[in-house]
């Protein structure tokens, strides 16, 4: 029970952190520009302000987009769980003592490096106790509530295995979205 509460707390703190980061990324630059504009003399300058039509959705390089220990890593766009890269494994292999789930969650992620969309399979690593120092991430972009079961990721994929204990999640490139 304590573990469940701990996991919920971790999920909440991860979510809040993620939201805060995202809102900082989305609003920081624009409000700074607005303040600068306030100091500047001449209203005409305002109409030249760059208006963010992407709603802050484009990740800027250098924010973890290419760091596989960061939630911002491009392959983790639909991930919900602990990063195996921070729990003794790698981005594509489970840590020693854990086995990959039989079933997995597959999504598409955009790689800003080559501007292509890839199919990413998120396997949970099972049968090993969760490591409290691991980085928790909740991105699940494109996820839908449980009434769209095919697009719902709030699931312990270890349920298909004999050892159902969840340890961490890896992100395998399984193809190109073409």
């Amino acid at each position: 029970m304590l573990k469940v509460i701990e996991r919920i707390q971790d999920a909440l703190s991860g979510f809040v952190e993620n939201t805060a980061r995202r809102s900082a990324r989305q609003f920081g630059r624009r409000s700074a520009l607005a303040k600068m504009g306030g100091v500047m003399v001449g209203g005409a300058a305002f109409s030249a302000l760059p208006f963010d039509r992407a709603w802050g959705a484009t990740p800027a390089a250098g924010d973890g987009t290419f760091d596989d220990k960061s939630c911002d890593y491009w392959r983790y766009c639909a991930l919900d769980g602990f990063l195996c890269t921070t729990a003794g494994g790698s981005k594509s292999s489970c840590p020693v003592g854990a086995e990959a789930s039989l079933v997995s969650w597959v999504g598409t992620c955009h790689n800003p490096g080559d501007k292509r969309d890839y199919l990413i399979s998120y396997y949970d690593c099972c049968g090993k106790t969760a490591f409290s120092g691991a980085q928790f991430c909740l991105r699940s972009e494109g996820e839908r509530p449980a009434y769209s079961m095919g697009l719902h990721n709030d699931i312990n994929w270890c349920m298909s295995n004999a050892n159902k204990g969840y340890h961490c999640t890896v992100a395998l490139v399984v193809g190109v979205a073409e």
Binding site: T108, H110, S121, A177
Partner: peptide, 19 residues
């Protein structure tokens, strides 16, 4: 969302199977 848009454009049966 962007994911839906990507999937709608997909035509490779193998990629669709994988996804």
């Amino acid at each position: 969302d962007d994911h839906d848009k990507v999937v709608r454009k997909m035509t490779s049966p193998k990629s669709l199977y994988m996804l």
